[in-house]
Simulated scan of single mutants.
Amino acid sequence: MDISLRIVIPSLLLFVLFIVDLGEGHNSCPELQCGNGPPIRFPFRLKDRQPDQHCGYPGFDLYCSHNNDTVLELASSVKAFVNSIDYESQFIEVTVSDNCFPWNIPGLHLSPPFQFKNSLYNYSLFSCTPETDTYTEYPYRVIQVPCLNSASASVLAFRSDVDIDDLPILSCTKMYTVSSVPYNIWSSPSLELTWSGPNCGHCEGKGKICRFENNSTDLKTECFDPDKDKGRSRKIMTTVSILGSFLLTLVVYALYRVYRYDKIEKENQARIEIFLEDYKALKPTRKNVDVTVENTSQIYFPEWIYNLLEQKEDLRVYVEDNGDAKIAKNLAIVGLWCIQWHPVDRPSMKVVVQMLEGEGDKLTMPPNPFASTNPTRTNVSMPARHLNQELEVILESE
């Protein structure tokens, strides 16, 4: 693959990832919910589905139970189920599994960011013998706690700031005192909690959504319009789609270039192998230059060919036409280049292919590759050689 493609493709990938990240921004925290529960968005977050801390304000962590209920941990021992969330008025309605908050009061210690919505009072709980309608005439001072009743006793909550000396409590035994709880905690299966910060109610009132300010380090929040943000996201996604299509086209083109380059290299390698096979058939052999003499001197066949070419004599081979004679001469010159004594003088395989495919008239004679400096007899009788079969493979490759 070209170096330009190796640089462009990773750069485009990084650019697309940057645009996607820019488009997501805070929108990587979509509105979620557990089953049919209330929608969950900032300042709340589902910590089991939104591990990113910036999706919610500190202390507003919720999670989905195995039954797909939305759970809020009020204390280490009290897990409340969220019935509804009013983001504009900033209160949340919760219940407990047994619908009896009084059972959980000993472990119910609210801490920021949540507080009870209604007014708070101190109460004393008494266990009394069951007596029908005994305390119905004291509705503001005595509250029945049905979920704590048993077959042998009724539980009543008395406000600590109210005088109870005139109440018939002789048949009652004090259980314990509870501080700072709303009056409806004794009789209602649900509680309403509120929070003061972050103040996202004004965003909801404008039809906007609250979130952290971009790059904020001090938990500051801001309002944003989800409709405008969706339009911006659509534009970004359109841009990403176009860039993705371009990138895919570029990758396909790059793969084609790699495939084409590999194919050409294989073809060149095959042609080189064919040439080497042909050259092996003409590898240097000892030839008798004077068949009329018994004790003949010996000379390498390539050296004999070199001398013929140097003296511009005929190669003394039988060929069918002048074209074949020209090919034979070209092969001889290229072969002599390939057997140069010094490796640096030998052409590369790529250059060899170019020499074979080029015009023979432009080929230059190589330096004399033979150590022998004695004059060589060229006017000896040499048996004629038919090169038709030897050239057939080369001709096919041209």
Rank of each mutant, 00 (worst) to 15 (best):
P39F: 15
R41N: 09
R41Y: 14
R41M: 11
R41P: 02
F44D: 06
F44W: 11
F44L: 07
F44G: 09
L46H: 10
L46Q: 10
K47Q: 13
D48H: 14
D48I: 12
D48P: 10
Q50V: 08
P51A: 12
D52L: 14
H54K: 15
C55W: 06
G56D: 08
Y57F: 15
P58R: 11
P58Q: 08
G59N: 09
D61Y: 02
L62S: 04
Y63E: 11
C64G: 07
S65D: 09
S65K: 04
N68G: 01
N68Q: 13
T70G: 07
V71F: 01
V71K: 05
V71T: 04
E73F: 00
L74C: 04
A75Q: 10
S76E: 15
S77I: 01
S77L: 12
S77Q: 13
V78R: 01
A80Y: 03
A80K: 02
F81T: 11
F81V: 10
F81K: 07
V82Y: 08
V82M: 07
N83S: 13
S84A: 14
I85R: 03
D86H: 09
Y87P: 01
Y87W: 04
E88C: 04
S89W: 02
Q90M: 13
F91Y: 15
F91T: 03
E93Q: 15
T95K: 00
V96Y: 02
S97L: 07
D98M: 00
N99K: 04
F101N: 05
F101D: 05
F101S: 06
F101Q: 08
W103P: 00
I105R: 02
I105G: 03
G107V: 00
L108H: 02
H109L: 07
S111M: 05
S111C: 00
S111T: 14
F114K: 04
F114M: 04
F114D: 07
Q115V: 12
Q115K: 15
K117Y: 14
L120T: 10
Y121F: 15
N122P: 01
N122Q: 05
Y123F: 15
Y123K: 07
Y123N: 06
S124N: 14
S124E: 14
S124Y: 06
F126R: 06
F126P: 03
C128R: 05
C128D: 09
C128E: 07
T129E: 13
T129R: 13
P130N: 09
P130Y: 06
E131T: 11
E131V: 14
E131A: 09
T132C: 01
T132K: 11
D133C: 00
Y135E: 00
T136M: 00
T136Y: 00
T136E: 06
E137M: 10
E137D: 11
P139D: 00
R141Q: 09
V142N: 02
V142R: 01
I143Q: 10
I143N: 05
Q144F: 05
Q144C: 05
Q144R: 13
V145K: 03
V145A: 06
V145E: 04
V145F: 01
V145R: 04
N149I: 02
S152Q: 11
S154I: 12
S154A: 10
S154D: 13
L156Q: 08
D161C: 03
V162N: 02
D163L: 12
D163I: 10
